[in-house]
């Protein structure tokens, strides 16, 4: 139970993937100008993270480790991610054209979103030891990808609200746009650090 809580808090807040690990910054800066697309992007990322988290765990535990091809991890993972993104895109198009309209343009971008590759690689380091999955490894991995996605969405949402407001103000010209967004992210990170060490 403690570990579950620790994973949730670390991934959502104190080790937030955007603010503290800088993963997923490109889509973060790209789609955080307005709230609506930010929500869609957040949902799409959570979705892709869950599917790729499950797929990479299975392949890593049952193919890569037994055959001792750990050096293929990066290539295999990125292929899994790219193909699951493709698969999700086709599936959503078939099942719900409405949802496809909302998420469609964001899905291809997620392939090169470092958060997906990042979390799945970190999973293999956190929840595998000596070439074997640790106890509850699969459940922890799924929880970790889910929490990472939630944290991504939380910060994306907060940022979109702030940037909508910033669009109306007169920031000095050379700080306008991205530099001020970085400064906001920096102060947000400082604030989130207040929750460090929660137990």
């Amino acid at each position: 139970m403690d570990k579950v809580l620790a994973i949730l808090i670390a991934n959502i807040i104190t080790n937030n993937y955007i603010l503290f690990k800088f993963m997923g910054l490109c889509p973060f800066l790209g789609v955080s100008k307005q709230t609506k697309p930010a929500i869609s992007m957040g949902l799409a990322v959570i979705f892709v993270l869950l599917i790729s988290g499950i797929m990479t765990w299975i392949i890593y535990a049952y193919v890569i480790l037994p055959f001792h091809i750990e050096y293929m991890r990066t290539v295999v993972f990125i292929l899994i991610i790219a193909s699951s993104v493709q698969f999700i895109e086709m599936m959503i198009l078939k099942v719900s054209p409405v949802l496809y309209k909302a998420l469609g343009i964001y899905l291809p971008l997620i392939t090169t979103n470092c958060i997906v590759l990042g979390v799945t690689v970190i999973n293999t380091e956190d929840f595998f030891a000596a070439g074997k999955p640790i106890a509850w490894s699969f459940a922890y991995s799924v929880l970790q990808v889910f929490a990472a996605g939630l944290g991504f969405m939380l910060v994306l949402l907060l940022m979109s609200g702030i940037r909508e407001r910033l669009a109306l103000t007169d920031t000095p010209e050379s700080l306008d746009g991205l530099p001020i967004a970085f400064i906001v992210a920096s102060i947000m990170g400082l604030a989130f650090m207040g929750l460090l060490g929660i137990k």
Binding site: G161, I162, E164, R165, A191, G194, L195, L196, G197, I198
Partner: peptide
């Protein structure tokens, strides 16, 4: 309260207000 009861720092007012500031536009 969360920071005071479970957090690493003894006092959390400053951080709490800053985090809440970030939610104001929403």
């Amino acid at each position: 309260s969360v920071i005071r009861i479970w957090g690493g720092y003894p006092e959390g007012v400053c951080y709490a207000i800053l985090i809440a500031n970030a939610t104001v536009p929403l």
